[in-house]
Design a protein around this nucleic acid. Structure first.
Lengths: 141, 141
DNA sequence: TGCATCTGTGACCATAACGGTGACAGATAG
DNA sequence: CTATCTGTCACCGTTATGGTCACAGATGCA
């Protein structure tokens, strides 16, 4: 996504993205497909085509990206159903669920405050300051 | 942990816990071992033994439990190393890392506010208002 | 129009992660 | 002394995930 943000209106092929990420083009296309379904990315077919951001990098938050790509729950509780014959087992999921939701939404609140444009400019600024930059301060805090 | 909180000073065997959770005793012992290493749980060996809370349920937060049990990072970024030949690939991890940390600590802040005692009393309160009145047995047997 | 390019998607395999299971030494209560 | 229970290991099967190949369809271009 950062690459797409930096390349603006120039389509980027999945082959090229795969090179940057260090993986296979089909994997990139798979992920791109998920992003497209959530309206974050669109693609141009044919020769010279590739992926483009569907909106400006300023209108995309990391929370949206996360939700598009990550399917399962952030905090997974019980993989197996607890025994309903035990007082605790019968109730624990109902008790834990609102807690899980609070924790999860706290994290999303943070991710919503980071826009893709912040990430791309931070990458460029790091590239400007070679070798010594330890902590890139994304101003949002 | 909730079961241990409710049973107070009475040791609970891994066999019994396994019954409540719906899994194998060895799995419980594996998890109990992790909790013990973090000082949340202690165990009594020999006949009539079992697991006990190392502190009161009021002194244990869900954040501690989470940290003890969950090993990997909450939000995992790149599984494979991005290409260092790409401007984005070379810098993206450094840029993303502080964002990840902010999001993660936001979640822990929530979990730190929930004590194990709150969970156990919530379970009991839910049990007090049942559609039908089940026998208050802790184990499944 | 024909060709090269690139997406979208499905199938398949290898690998990693994780829970389930059995086993066994050591500790301890009775 | 014996029954019980922990702590830990090894091992297996399942599941999730990424890597890879393949192929149809869309599109720009000569």
């Amino acid at each position: 996504m950062t690459v797409l943000a930096l390349r603006r209106d120039e389509p980027t092929s999945s082959e090229m993205l795969a090179g940057s990420v260090g993986t296979n083009a089909a994997v990139i296309r798979r992920i791109l497909s998920m992003l497209a379904k959530h309206g974050l990315v669109r693609s141009r077919l044919g020769a010279g085509g590739g992926a483009l951001l569907a909106r400006t990098a300023d209108e995309i938050t990391l929370a949206e990206v996360y939700r598009a790509v990550e399917t399962g729950e952030l905090i997974c509780t019980h993989r197996c159903e607890p025994s309903s014959k035990c007082v605790v087992g019968a109730r624990i999921l109902d008790v834990l669920e609102p807690i899980r939701q609070r924790a999860e939404s706290a994290m999303f609140t943070q991710l919503e405050q980071v826009r893709l444009s912040m990430v791309s400019t931070a990458v460029l600024e790091e590239a400007d300051q070679p070798a010594t930059a330890p902590a890139p301060e994304l101003n949002t805090a």
